[in-house]
Write a protein that binds this DNA or RNA. Structure first.
Ligand SMILES: [Mn+2]
Ligand SMILES: [Mn+2]
Ligand SMILES: [Zn+2]
Ligand SMILES: [Zn+2]
Lengths: 138, 138
DNA sequence: CAATAGATTAGAATATTTCTAATCTATTTT
DNA sequence: AAAATAGATTAGAAATATTCTAATCTATTG
């Protein structure tokens, strides 16, 4: 259970002003035991349910974009109809359960290291990530 | 250079009526030598430039959705701001050039086969795909 | 070659994302 | 320490993107 000051500090450190809206969003995203995979709609719904004062959807977008830019979260694209963000910002792989729309982290030691045989001259590799789509049996 | 009849047949085979709109879209997508990676906006622009009669954007969406359902194309999600479709419907990997927004197919023999050490009981694997993000040097 | 049932199109409605004027925050000046 | 200023942030409005559904088109039946 982090207190507000933790988040105020975190925000100040990266040059973001610790506004009420941002602190609330930090609490929702980071005051958790596990990685959180969420869409903007998920986040808006949670904020609405717990918040007294409404945070405008535009502000949620603004905040998520600046948190992404600052490296607090990363974007995960799976399907066209729902975009996800991830509080685990490391380079990592995912299971995506198509039956439940659930996203699950894979750890590095769950997968043999990916070996590319092809290289592209004049290009540098920024990330290599695997997406394993799964479905419930039956 | 395929003629219209090829596409009319293709459409009829999967139970889709060969309308003018669908034939034009087939020509644009499949009358090519190479895999085509495109967004709805890309496709709309091409259709607009070559077409005499305008195809409504709603129809482009409808058609792309039914072509996807019939397995003519597959969806590739890379970033939240642009969704891609791919005329290569096989399970395959991609390079994505973040400097140019270009998507390039990787062939199976360009990558060592992915080995998962972790399995999920009660789930079946539908696909395993790698996304390699790259950028131009300098 | 109607009449009918069902599929398809595309304008209208809705949903998502971005833009920007008004507000708020932090810093500087008096 | 209060007021002025510069710049950051919020959130309603505008713009884009996607889906819905009434009107139209296509294929089948008699
Ligand atoms: Mn979208
Ligand atoms: Mn999208
Ligand atoms: Zn993750
Ligand atoms: Zn491809």
């Amino acid at each position: 259970m982090s207190n507000n000051d933790t988040f105020i500090q975190k925000l100040r450190c990266s040059g973001l002003r610790p506004t009420k809206q941002r602190i609330k969003i930090c609490k929702t995203l980071f005051d958790r035991n596990n990685t959180f995979h969420f869409s903007i709609a998920d986040l808006a719904k949670i904020l609405e349910s717990k918040s007294s004062r409404k945070i405008s959807l535009a502000t949620i977008y603004n905040t998520i974009h600046s948190f992404k830019k600052k490296g607090y979260i990363k974007e995960i694209s799976i399907t066209s109809d729902k975009n996800y963000y991830d509080t685990n910002v490391s380079n990592h792989h995912h299971f995506f359960n198509e039956s439940t729309n659930e996203l699950i982290d894979l750890h590095d030691d769950d997968v043999e290291k990916v070996r590319l045989k092809k290289t592209l001259p004049g290009k540098k590799i920024k990330s290599i990530e695997i997406l394993v789509k799964i479905a419930n049996n039956k």
